[in-house]
Nucleic acid binder design. Structure first.
Length: 290
DNA sequence: ATCGGTACCTGCACGC
DNA sequence: TGCGTGCAGGTACCGA
């Protein structure tokens, strides 16, 4: 599900509900045998479950932030000396982070519940496909050192410089979190359409003008998507359970065979789909020439 | 350096 | 109704 705009929306909705609260208890859940639960947790958590519970219990949530597609909980543990601890959540394809008011509620795919010192309120982590990951870290640097710049913070010049050094196809590059952090399949396609650039174009061959169009295309797409609360295709909701609405403004993503919204009326062009980096890639053959 | 393939999961739509 | 197939927002790892 979640790319930069969805994660940003989750963080913004979660923050006012949990910032300043203390985590009373971490509870792991899920149906199936004890061994099945253990295997599942081993994949989802990098830390052994018991150690995870021990370290997080009693910690205060000082801040909730986004780093690329990660949700970062800034924690202060209540050990003898106040220590910083980071809870890092990556939502994979179908992960959800929601705030619940009913203490006993569990959805079918809830894996972790963090109960808060706030009249039965809790943070729920659920994930149907279990591609998401949860980690504890003392430092952010080790976890995030491989990630590229944030596409909303990078400057036009910096993007141009980075593009010049790479010979990959743009679609592959935009999906690469070491190049830019936060863009996924939806927003790669939507950004390239807004920029009017073919997804298979080679990065290093972009001139200054087209690089600038890409820069604007990415910024426009991401900020509009954030303003609409993200794209809800099937699973995504924010921390209050509200869907996003940017899917109603998708120009190319999952519109294969439908008329291009920019030139379809006039020229009858239809959105096409091709595979790049083994991912579906949607584009208008007329608006995005090679 | 970059690419394709595979693996990890469940659910859903589709054709038969 | 059920079964098989393919596809889905992500990433890591492999060998070429």
């Amino acid at each position: 599900m979640p790319e930069l705009p969805e994660v940003e929306t989750i963080v913004r909705s979660l923050r006012p509900m949990v910032a300043g609260r203390r985590i009373i208890e971490a509870e792991f859940c899920g149906c199936g045998s004890r061994e099945a639960l253990h295997r599942r947790l081993q994949r989802i958590l990098a830390t052994p479950p018991v150690e995870f519970q021990r370290r997080i219990q009693g910690a205060r949530i000082e801040a909730v932030e986004r780093y690329g597609k990660h949700v970062v909980f800034n924690l202060r543990t209540n050990g003898s000396q106040d220590e910083r601890l980071y809870l890092l959540v990556h939502l994979g394809m179908t992960g959800r982070l929601t705030c619940e008011n009913t203490p006993e509620f569990r959805s079918k795919h809830t894996h972790l519940v963090l109960s808060l010192d706030d009249s039965g309120r809790s943070i729920h982590y659920s994930d149907i496909r279990r591609f998401g990951r949860i980690r504890l870290a003392e430092r952010l640097g080790e976890e995030f050192s491989k990630l590229g710049p944030d596409p909303l913070q990078i400057s036009r010049e910096e993007l141009f410089r980075l593009l010049r050094t790479r010979r990959a196809m743009l679609k592959s590059l935009l999906l690469d979190q070491r190049f830019l952090r936060g863009i996924g399949n939806i927003y790669a396609d939507e950004s390239l359409f807004r920029a009017g650039i073919h997804p298979a174009a080679i990065a290093s061959r972009l001139g200054r003008v087209r690089a600038q169009r890409l820069y604007e295309g990415i910024r426009e797409t991401l900020s509009l998507a954030i303003a609409e609360g993200g794209s809800s295709i099937s699973d995504y909701v924010d921390a209050s359970g509200q869907p996003g609405f940017f899917q109603l403004q998708h120009q190319v993503y999952q519109r294969t065979g439908e008329p291009c919204l920019r030139c379809g009326q006039e020229f009858g062009s239809k959105i096409r789909k091709m595979i790049i980096a083994s991912r579906s890639t949607h584009y208008c053959p007329r608006c995005q020439r090679k």
